[in-house]
Write a protein that binds this DNA or RNA. Structure first.
Length: 493
RNA sequence: GGCAUCGUGGCCGAGUGGCUAGGCACAGCUCUGCAAAAGCUUGUACAGCGGUUCGAAUCCGCUCGAUGCCUCCA
């Protein structure tokens, strides 16, 4: 099904600052690269929001019938800690701290990353390359940039010459900065550097004797610079020019700006047609960040073991919460917001569940085709999941009216509605049906049905003490009974 | 200091010139043995000031406030 032929999708392109009609380089195919995590600690919730945004985008492209090659890297070589640390990288630093081999650190946190993403029901990317697996490619790119004259070597390190590059190219076009402004506003710390200009960035860094992670190169033993791995891996798997590059807003400058510069300097091509940036998740109004301790880990939310939230929340609830905001907006995490999302999420799931048992009629009081197109329109407008969700709730309302006998739906339309719901709720939004994940659901369901029968018998005999006992004790166990026109149903929270 | 983004009703959060976003909470009603669930109805909004316009939450200017980037971070 090549749905994309009938749908016009618009995306917010950071490169132009505009919402543009999306047109892939090759019809029917999409190449997408997203900057992945640095695996030197557990993945925090802010990271998850970015990857969730692109998981949703990946899912929608697939739903539209595109063949997508989605590349998301693992940064296992570490970036430079900061200038003051003089070349010690994050992975190596953590390794010393914990008395582990660097690759042991990498392994531990890569596993954590995958486990967490699986709980959130993320689809795996098509390729998940590692920085350390692409040292040769990175060295090749450095050679090309040196040949073109946009880099220089100093004492075993290689730096990108931003000023020279800017003479013939536009350094700052993605982030809206001008090199002159950057130079004028540079806080000149200690002018200790080997760099010609403070704006220059490292392509290759010489490894000091104590540095553990090191590779041989034409410039001596060292390790690759901060921005090079993404250029190497995106070029290798998606080509010199590809459709979409995504990442968190905080990577726009300098990381993505430098990627553009590296690609243009080495092969002359602007690497990416559409730059997509997901916005930050904040906690207490501030950006979540590992370095400032203003963060919460996914497992702390799932277990309720934290000082911020009043209770535990399921991964699906957190996913639903995040998708209720647009991916380009800042979203603030709070207990009130999660509680509201949790209720809404169960309302959506309950409504969806009751659709299966709804009675049918010869006619339908609700234009399902028009509603379906409104759902597509929402997604086509820069993946507007909050609007899509509002449409889903509109349909839930109709379902509840049908259930209550106030509206009707035909057999065919019911099947159609079920299919569309399945498409958007499970396939596109990637939500999970809480009932399906329960292994003992059949047994449990039978037991509850039996209790419902006993309660109804008691009610018929006006033995309300017994009926209320059954209802209240079940409620205390998290099983809620709902008396409707068609009999009593239940849901488990 | 520079660049950028944002400020929507009790809370979260869509919406870029005129038409009900949605969820949660609150109130009333219907239903119910009573509740819950569901449905119906209602309310309080667009930070402030000024401008453009027949008309602005939406465009422009200023003020105030918040956030992000400018140094590793999604």
């Amino acid at each position: 099904m090549q749905l994309f032929k009938n749908q016009t999708l618009k995306v917010s392109n950071s490169l132009t600052g505009k919402k543009e009609v999306f047109k892939p380089i090759k019809e029917g195919y999409i190449g997408m690269y997203v900057c992945g995590p640095t695996v030197y600690s557990n993945v925090h919730l802010g990271n998850c929001r970015t990857f969730m945004s692109f998981d949703m985008i990946f899912r929608y492209f697939r739903h539209l019938g595109y063949k997508v090659r989605y590349v998301r890297n693992i940064t296992d070589a570490g970036h430079l800690e900061n200038d003051a640390d003089d070349g010690e990288d994050k992975i190596a630093k953590k390794a010393k701290l914990e008395q582990l081999e660097p690759m042991e650190v990498v392994q531990r946190y890569t596993v954590d990353f995958h486990e967490t993403l699986q709980k959130f029901n993320f689809l795996p990317p098509s390729i998940e390359p590692t920085a350390t697996g692409h040292i040769i490619e990175q060295i090749e790119i450095i050679k090309e940039i040196l040949e073109k004259g946009f880099a220089y070597e100093r004492n075993g390190s290689v730096y990108f010459d931003v000023v020279k590059f800017n003479e013939t190219h536009d350094y700052g076009k993605l982030s809206g900065r001008k090199l002159e402004d950057m130079i004028a506003n540079t806080r000149d710390l200690a002018a200790q550097d080997e760099k010609r200009n403070p704006q220059d960035f490292a392509l290759w860094k010489k490894a000091e004797a104590q540095h553990i992670m090191r590779w041989p190169s034409p410039w001596g033993d060292g390790f690759p610079g901060w921005h090079l791995e993404c250029t190497a891996m995106s070029t290798k798997y998606l080509g010199e020019n590809f459709d979409i590059h995504g990442g968190g807003m905080d990577l726009k400058f300098p990381h993505h700006e430098c990627e553009i510069a590296q690609a243009e300097a080495s092969n002359g091509h602007s690497p990416v047609n559409y730059w997509l940036h997901a916005n930050m998740l904040t906690l207490n109004g501030k950006k979540m960040s590992k370095s400032t301790d203003n963060n919460i880990y996914p497992n702390e939310i799932f277990s309720g073991d934290n000082n911020i939230l009043s209770k535990a929340y399921a991964p699906s609830v957190v996913r639903f919460f995040m998708l209720q905001a647009h991916y380009t907006s800042i979203l603030d995490l709070s207990d009130d917001a999660l509680l509201a999302s949790e209720k809404g999420y169960y309302r959506l799931m309950d409504g969806l569940k009751s659709l299966a048992d709804v009675p049918t009629s010869p006619t339908t009081d609700f234009d399902i085709k028009a509603w379906q197109q409104r759902c597509y329109d929402a997604m086509n407008d820069d993946f507007n999941t909050p609007i899509l969700i509002s449409h889903l709730f509109e349909a839930i309302k109709h379902i509840n009216l049908i259930k209550g006998g106030k509206e009707s739906i035909s057999e065919n339309d019911k099947a159609l509605l079920q299919r569309i719901f399945k498409d958007f709720v499970f396939e596109v939004l990637g939500l999970e049906n809480p009932q399906q994940s329960d292994n003992n659901s059949e047994t449990l369901s039978g037991v509850v049905q039996l209790l419902i029968q006993l309660r109804n018998n008691a009610r018929a005999n006006k033995d309300f003490a017994t009926s209320d006992k059954i209802r209240d004790e079940l409620a205390a166990m998290g099983v809620q009974l709902k008396d409707g026109k068609e009999g009593t149903t239940f849901s488990i929270n």
